[in-house]
Simulated assay, not measured.
Amino acid sequence: MREGVSTRETWPFECLHCLRVWEEEYVVHRRDDEHGNDVVVWTREGVAVQPPWSGTSCPGCGCGTVTTFPTGYLAHHPEITLGRPALQIPAEEESSRGGWWFTSHGLVTLALLLPAGLGLYERITAH
């Protein structure tokens, strides 16, 4: 590789699962190879990593559904708190929500399958 330019970039992220907001700093090395093609290498703490828009996981919950903000966005939006804790749902509320979800979908599934099963049973026994 030939001589190039290295810059520091700070990327703000938000987890779309737990709503945690954080920033990560990268050093970006931009150079041309022997054939004149652009080569970009992203590093964090001296280790080559994927670019911020690829393969980032939430440090709070580990979810890979993460979005980025434009550089400098958080500086202009003080209402967004960096490192805010992940969204906490009390255990009793989470279990009641989960139970309701399964119950309601289970009832709908049962209501749809019973008539279909009854019709199939009548066809089989009629022959």
Rank of each mutant, 00 (worst) to 15 (best):
V40Q: 14
P70T: 08
T43D: 01
F69A: 11
V28C: 03
A116G: 08
R20Y: 07
D38L: 07
E122A: 12
E3K: 15
F102V: 10
C58P: 07
G106F: 03
W42Q: 03
L107V: 03
T71N: 07
T109P: 02
T81K: 12
V27S: 06
A126S: 14
T81V: 15
P85D: 15
P78L: 09
E24F: 00
G55F: 00
D32E: 13
L19F: 11
T67R: 14
R44Y: 00
E79G: 06
V21I: 14
T43V: 00
S104M: 12
I124Y: 05
V21K: 02
E45V: 05
G4V: 01
H17F: 08
G64T: 15
F102N: 08
L107G: 03
G98E: 14
H76L: 15
G36K: 14
T67A: 15
G98C: 07
R2K: 15
T7D: 03
A48M: 03
H127C: 02
R123H: 11
F69K: 06
I89M: 01
G72Q: 04
L74F: 08
R97I: 13
A48L: 02
T125F: 04
E23W: 03
G60I: 09
W53Q: 14
G62M: 05
R31V: 01
P12W: 01
R44W: 00
Q88F: 10
A75D: 15
L16I: 08
G72Y: 07
W22L: 02
R97N: 15
T7S: 06
T68F: 00
S95F: 01
A91R: 04
A126N: 11
L113F: 10
H77F: 10
I80A: 06
N37Q: 12
R31Q: 12
H127K: 15
T109A: 15
P52H: 02
G72A: 12
T10W: 02
R84V: 15
L16A: 09
E9G: 00
C61W: 02
L107D: 01
G83P: 04
T71W: 00
E25Y: 01
G36W: 07
R123Y: 08
A91M: 03
V21A: 04
G98D: 14
F13V: 04
W11S: 06
Q88E: 15
G98L: 08
R20A: 09
E92N: 10
A48N: 05
P51N: 07
Y73H: 13
G83E: 14
P70K: 06
M1F: 03
F69E: 10
C18I: 06
P52M: 05
Q88A: 12
T125R: 15
G72V: 10
